[in-house]
């Protein structure tokens, strides 16, 4: 069976609206009667990823595909990219500017948290071009 898709545009630096896409996807998962714990995992990783775009990139796009087995989220941004994805996956590693940190973001927990809360995480990045993050979480079992 084919799934259901959603798409959202994200503006870099727009902290006012950071989290809106996550919130809408959360609502969808509640409507689908996905288990509470699973919703929590999806939302934690998605929110981290959404805030990453807002905090670091110029703009980005979130595409969501939900089918009976899993939710698959692709977050593609145009931005500075990540120099070392390996380093970024380490707990506490952060390149966030002091102003971003002062807003309560950029604690270096983003990618580690996403890894912890998803069943599949892939980060592809090109310095000076942008980053594509793919998150998958199984909805059953």
């Amino acid at each position: 069976m084919s799934g259901i898709t959603f798409s959202y545009k994200i503006d870099g630096g727009d902290f006012v609206n950071a989290g809106k896409a996550s919130s809408e996807i959360k609502r969808t998962l509640k409507q689908l009667n996905v288990a509470q714990k699973t919703i929590k995992r999806v939302v934690v990783s998605l929110y981290e990823a959404e805030v990453n775009i807002v905090a670091h990139a110029h703009r980005g796009e979130i595409n969501v595909l939900i089918n009976a087995e899993e939710i698959s989220i692709t977050l593609k941004d145009e931005g500075p990219g990540i120099e070392s994805v390996e380093q970024a996956m380490e707990v506490g590693y952060s390149t966030a500017s002091p102003s971003v940190v002062s807003m309560g973001f950029g604690a270096g927990m983003g990618l580690p948290n996403m890894k912890k809360n998803s069943d599949y995480l892939n980060v592809e990045s090109k310095v000076g071009v942008g980053t594509t993050v793919t998150i998958k979480v199984a909805l059953v079992g």
Binding site: M1, G3, K30, Q31, L32, N33, A68, L139
Partner: peptide
């Protein structure tokens, strides 16, 4: 909030 208790049916309803 849920469309259906069964996620499969809920997905169909959402479509």
């Amino acid at each position: 909030v849920k469309f259906d208790s069964d996620p499969m049916k809920a997905l169909l309803k959402m479509q």
